[in-house]
Amino acid sequence: MNVAQTPKPAISWPALLVGLGLTLPLLGILLSGLFHDPHDLGNPLEDETAPRFTLPRLDGQGTLSLEQLRGKPTIINFWATWCQSCPLEHPVLEQAAREFGDQVQFVGIAYEDKSERLSAWLQRANRGRPSAYPTLIDVGGKVAVAYGVYGVPETYFVDAQGTVKHKKTGPFLPSADPTADGRLELRRILGEML
C-alpha cells in the first residue's frame, strides 16, 4: 500500500470543528449532570415553615414538639430499623450531635417502626452508650407524610425560626473520598446554618 508520507501538514478543519462541536457540548452536559441527583425530586418545603409535630419520645420521657426546639437550628433525621444504610449513617449523626450538640438540636424520627425494635437497634448501634440525641416515634407515619418523606433515611435542616432550609435525600455515609464523604457534607451544611 502506498504510505502517504507526503509532507502535507494539512489539518482537516471540518473534521476538527464537527468533532469538537459534537464532543464538547456532550462533555459539558455530562459534567452538569454530575451536579444534579436524578433521584432528587425537589423539596417543596424549602424556605417554607416546617410542619409542626408533637411526638412521643422513644425513651418514654413524655413528648417532644418542634415548638420546644425553636431558637436553635434543628436537624430532623427520618430513619427506620429496616433501612439498610441507616446503620452506616447512624455513627455520623451521633458524632455530629456530640460535637455540635450545644449549637444545634438533632432529632431522630423513627418511621414505620416499633418501639421495642427501635430500642434494641439503638442499644446495639450505640454499643450500650446513651444516644446523643432523642428519637421520636411517628405513629402512623403522619409527620413523615407532612414532610414529604419519600424514603428513609432523609434529613431535614430547620433553622432557629422554624423554616426548612435544606433536605438531604439518602444517608450521610462516611467515605475516604472527600468529594463523597457524608461527614464533610454534614459539616458543611451545619456550617451554613450557624
Partner: peptide
C-alpha cells in the same frame, strides 16, 4: 415511590423477616 433506594452498594442489614 416509597422504597429505600438510597443504599450504598453491598451493605445489607440482616434480613428482618418478622417485620
Amino acid at each position: 415511590r416509597h422504597s429505600n433506594e438510597y443504599k450504598a452498594p453491598g451493605d445489607q442489614e440482616t434480613v428482618d423477616l418478622d417485620y
